[in-house]
Design a protein around this nucleic acid. Structure first.
Lengths: 228, 228
DNA sequence: TAAAAAAGTTAGCCATGACTAACAAATTAA
DNA sequence: TTAATTTGTTAGTCATGGCTAACTTTTTTA
């Protein structure tokens, strides 16, 4: 009874692994992504990851040599991008229509992205009038899986005196997102770097008449467009 | 990390069984609902159903004696009603906002109803301004699990000459729903019973200037309010 | 009321996707 | 360049939720 058009026949787990591998691969394209790294990212044992990678290789979504680095086939990438599209569209819906906050959307979107129906997601896209970015500032791939990659400049990479605009935040950690909201940072906030303290790399920043000191780790998860 | 408020810790399968049992129990409260009946309803083997019933009894959602009839505890009913609430709210959203038709919503709502988040469903309810009925005319339980039961009069139970209004359709079969749409029946359609043919119990009906002959089986799945 | 049919149960098997423990290969450091 | 460490793999186990086959209990019917 299940419509083939609405389904890629992958389990939730298989989808999770493909998406995770994709995320790791685009984080830094030049660096090897290995089995244990994938396992850690997904909070499973190396054995579990190894097992699943074997299956995904057999299904033609992943390529790797024994003891070698992991990579996705075009098919694997395509599925991952579709999942990211779904995830970001749902996050957008939750924030813009259902009063969810930044830190609340992730867990629910993680469930919603596994609902199988092309019509559902394309209609949701249309309903929201084809949004280009999700609430965290990340680009939403279109129905054909096309998307532009934002040049991700970390706040931590700018020198003292620089002025920039917040264009995206890393959405991997609920605690981080809560923290960002609490201090009052939102997308498009204009941020000035007042001082970088050599001792511990902490950074004094100013935005909307607020002055805050943030850690290097915090600044690594804030992505900006340089203005000055 | 999963918020207890957002989760009842039941698997998708457990939820499916509880909902199915609930649906069977309200269909006819006086008749026994047995293991094999539940199995058939869910398209699983009697052994599988038996197995799951055992587990749900241990968890306190189902009661039954050996070789006896099945029943739900208050806890079991509460979970089933919440699932029905979620299912019907999602169906309403799909039809009213995402251009889904009657026959397209069921499969997708079946997936969406298992997404765990109280906030999601209550906000969806609010977003749609607390709809009272789903697209098939069925009553949507409120956030406290309260709902009124429609007096379900089958079209097939009315005599020749009667005039009635379509208030709900059985949403169990995609093919049935397609058929209903194709001949042009919608909620609130006024239907007149022109003739009941004794030979095969087929019924000639008129609605919106259309005259159609439908089978007894068809009329069993159409629920109406009598006008004349 | 005894035999047949239907309904319910149990035992044992399979696939999925976790896990640990043990081992092998590759990389890094002394 | 050998030893230590990290990374990857394999084998074997477990829980979930399906399944079939065989059996038992209940209900129906002849």
């Amino acid at each position: 009874m299940t419509n083939k058009l609405n389904s890629n026949n992958l389990t939730k787990s298989e989808e999770d692994y493909l998406k995770a591998l994709f995320q790791l691969l685009i984080e830094d394209e030049s660096v090897k992504v290995g089995n244990n790294q994938l396992a850690e990212y997904l909070n499973v044992s190396p054995a579990s990851a190894n097992n699943m990678i074997k299956k995904l290789k057999a299904k033609g979504y992943v390529v790797s040599e024994k003891y070698g680095k992991l990579d996705l086939t075009e098919g694997g990438k395509s599925i991952a991008v579709r999942l990211i599209r779904k995830h970001r569209l749902w996050e957008t819906f939750l924030c813009n229509y259902l009063n969810f906050t930044w830190d609340e959307v992730h867990d629910v979107a993680e469930q919603l992205e596994h609902v199988k129906s092309y019509k559902l997601i394309d209609e949701l896209d249309r309903f929201m009038d084809f949004p280009k970015k999700d609430p965290h500032g990340e680009v939403i791939p279109n129905a054909d899986g096309e998307y532009s990659v934002l040049p991700k400049i970390m706040l931590s990479s700018l020198p003292e005196g620089a002025v920039c605009q917040l264009i995206a935040v890393n959405d991997g950690s609920v605690n981080f997102l809560k923290y960002v909201s609490e201090i009052g940072l939102v997308l498009s906030s204009e941020i000035k770097i007042l001082e970088i303290r050599e001792f511990d790399k902490s950074i004094r920043i100013q935005f909307n008449d607020v002055i805050e000191t943030v850690t290097r780790k915090f600044a690594d998860n804030i992505f900006v467009k340089k203005i000055v």
